[in-house]
Design a protein around this nucleic acid. Structure first.
Lengths: 200, 200
DNA sequence: TTTCCGCTTGTGGATCACCACAATGGCCGA
DNA sequence: TCGGCCATTGTGGTGATCCACAAGCGGAAA
């Protein structure tokens, strides 16, 4: 069950059709675009999927589209297709985070395998992104004081010390502490530490 | 101050000499090797540095050496040099974890910059590897009981509950807890959680 | 102006964590 | 066999945490 979509961007209709067919036959939903501009217009950041991108196209090239997506903060996996690639181009693309760089003619099955793998990876990334976003959201709901208290809790300080540092009473620290635990959805300081340490 | 070393492996004496000179002039210690075999013989796993590796060599090729190093668990950064590289070769090398893939003729300064960057990266990696090793070592020094108690502490359980789970007294749990905190070098459960969460 | 929210503090009690002092029994290597 | 390490438990006390019940103050929004 692949819920992921592969976006095919190539100005050669024959290749678009062939690839579209190929992916559909393997159960991967495909969407084709004639140009980089078309894809940019249709694509909204945050949407999932894998991009199969021809490099040499009229108008915006695949590499330019990739750069543009990177600037936009897109993180979807990109597999380049090219008939006229050179080594520096491939190296540069991969070092910028492209997932693969395939020369034409390519092996159909290998390409599909790569896309399926990329889609699985993408699904994981989306999930962990969602987690991170949820975490950030909860953090955003904290009050200034609650954040301050949280930092000191994570530093392993006792309520007494935190109270001293912030110039307030222990009782007040307890209140903030309880509030932030509730907002962050944890019951103990240990859980909180794990929540904020794991990522990164 | 670069304490790192760049290992140059190339069967062309002119290039070895030129690169050796080039790196020394920029303050980077260089060691040259005539062949992949020579390097393998001299190399001991765990030693730091950056590898600049020619691909086409008599005997073992650069790519073969790289594969061998990967199998051995070596993680040092590898920068390939080649005059006859093709795209699939470059893509494959980078996907296997090579740091860069440079075609001859190359720009001297760029190469040195890349090596210096790689050495800095390598230094960080070594440091975090050392941390991980130290952590693993401390974990290894824990008793079975101590590890069991640790798990439950990390699960946020109270001593009372832990005692119940393990079928022992609260007092005993307290003892194990104190011991493992000491062995792990932490003073609070929060520190412990951070220690064991940060590194994946 | 009234209301809501955040920040603040107090009291007191039930738990819990931490530690020093003390002790028993088992296993293993010197 | 003796010493050391490990696991186990007890007692008693100090300090911390957690929480319910209560309440005052100030700013911002309605």
């Amino acid at each position: 069950m692949n819920t992921g979509v592969v976006y095919i961007v190539d100005d050669d209709e024959a290749i678009r059709d062939a690839l579209g067919w190929l992916f559909q036959s393997r159960g991967v939903n495909a969407e084709c675009f004639v140009s980089a501009e078309d894809f940019l217009a249709a694509w909204t950041i945050g949407s999932s999927g894998c991009l199969v991108l021809d490099i040499r196209m009229e108008g915006m090239t695949g590499l330019e589209l990739f750069d543009r997506l990177c600037e936009m903060g897109a993180k979807l996996p990109v597999i380049f297709l090219t008939g006229h690639g050179d080594v520096p181009m491939a190296v540069s693309a991969l070092k910028k985070g492209a997932r693969d760089f395939v020369e034409k003619p390519f092996n159909d099955n290998d390409l599909v395998d790569k896309v399926i793998e990329a889609l699985a990876w993408e699904a994981e990334r989306m999930a962990s992104d969602a987690d991170a976003a949820s975490l950030a959201q909860r953090l955003g709901n904290l009050t200034l004081r609650e954040r301050q208290v949280m930092e000191k809790v994570l530093a392993g300080k006792l309520n007494k010390v935190i109270a001293d540092d912030l110039g307030i009473t222990m009782r007040t620290v307890e209140v903030h502490r309880a509030h932030l635990f509730e907002k962050m959805g944890v019951k103990t300081a240990v859980e909180l530490a794990q929540l904020l340490s794991q990522r990164r």
